[in-house]
Design a protein around this nucleic acid. Sequence first.
DNA 1: AATTTAATAGTGAGTACTTACTTATTATAG
DNA 2: CTATAATAAGTAAGTACTCACTATTAAATT
Lengths: 187, 187
Amino acid sequence: MKNSLHLQVITYTLMTDKKEKILQSALVLFANEGVSATSTNKIAKLAGVSEGLIFRHYKSKKGLLNAIIENAEQKVNILFGDIMMQTDPKSVILKTIEFPFLIKKSEYNYWKLQFKLKWEEEYNNPNKMKPLLDKLTWAFTQLNYDFPALEAQYMLQTLESISTEILKGNLTNQQQFKQFLIHKYSA
Amino acid sequence: MKNSLHLQVITYTLMTDKKEKILQSALVLFANEGVSATSTNKIAKLAGVSEGLIFRHYKSKKGLLNAIIENAEQKVNILFGDIMMQTDPKSVILKTIEFPFLIKKSEYNYWKLQFKLKWEEEYNNPNKMKPLLDKLTWAFTQLNYDFPALEAQYMLQTLESISTEILKGNLTNQQQFKQFLIHKYSA
DNA sequence: AATTTAATAGTGAGTACTTACTTATTATAG
DNA sequence: CTATAATAAGTAAGTACTCACTATTAAATT
């Protein structure tokens, strides 16, 4: 079979099986070993494909990375979108707290890669969080918090670190911790 | 000059200038470009030494990394030690909050490297924080918080994320944020 | 104090192997 | 038949590391 139809929540994409296999294999390696530590040779072997095919489909190693990042950003936007569309301030807080705990195990590698890349200047874009930060500031304002902007910043930072710990496998008491946060914000 | 005397707060170490230069150059590159992305050739050039000298002094690239990590851990222990020796629960909280804001610019690379390495399974050791976690749990217990263990975990995570943002250069309102946290814990 | 001996610091060219990427060629689908 | 998918076999530059060698310093012996 040369082509297969893959449903991605936002767009339909036609991708050959092998092209897709390359993407998945690269994701696994990039996320767990790091981009520089992953050779195109390794990717090809894991994907069961000739090395040349990577370059036919993605032009360069960086092109492959960018393709993965685009995929990853879709997944972020889906979860973010759910928060952004809330109209009740309490729901905004609640959804935001729930956010790190909603990350599916099957998508860990996407998130791992994204968090790792934040350490590379080229891919670290703090402004990407701006809309969510504004939404949270609005929510805390509605709820009459003393320093809504700082509260928003505080919450975002906490959530980033919680996500990080979950992805590293360090947060063993996830549900307990989630309840604790909800209780703390009486959300 | 072959040898120079370097005062390191815990031990005195005799190191040749070039050996020291290798260490510093490697730190800069490891912290900012990543370990795998840094070649021994690059390190040698930045240090202004022959590549072979790296291996004479540190045996391998990994040996060099380990030497840097040892140095870095000393710096962590100094800051941690200050918190651990506090006897008043409020002081424990206050010192802990102040912790990320005490990181000197001149030592950013040490911390950057350590935080980056937490993503590599080999170097990620969550138990290293255990003593501090216990101390914080004790402090929150003394202060009659409802869930001292969770509060401690929460605070540690917050601090990790603040440190991270500072090191990435994303936290522009450091003093404001620090005051906000102190106010929040009335510390 | 002078001279030999030993040890360490440092170099530069070379090692086998890996890297990202290319090119020529063949297979396969519509 | 044509266009694209896929491969195998390249390439030049880079990789961590070694080796044979020299330079510098310290220690031991006169």
